[in-house]
Amino acid sequence: MRGARIALAALAIGALAACSGAVREPASDNGQQAKFAALRSTSIALPEDDQTFGEGAAVAPLNAHCLACHSTSMILYQPQLSKAQWQAIVDKMRDAYGAPVPADQAPAIVDALVALQAKHADGR
């Protein structure tokens, strides 16, 4: 069985027999009668995501400020962006989404993003 492919607790809601409500059928419903009678409690576990941008001073600002709300791929999968575009993204993270980016560190983060993309572009 796949470890992560689970629906852990299946809480019985035995009392809910067939639904009593009339099934209204819009034209698009090919006469399929609703049989759905109960919902089971569900819990899932997501695969762990501990990835970082790697080690070293070049990526340290990104590890410190850009991993709380989303994985590295949110950044690594972006197309080639200009410095101004990265600046706009860092501003948006701070102003619209509340990312704690101290004003004096924003330039270092933008530089790190530009350098990261340049490095990957060279390595391609």
Binding site: D50, A64, H65, L76, P100, P102
Partner: peptide, 23 residues
Amino acid sequence: GAAALAGGAIARAAGGFSRPAPD
């Protein structure tokens, strides 16, 4: 929530399951 959003560095293990390649 606590460490990173307070500006602290996060200790993260390498690995994980689905390594993104650059674009």
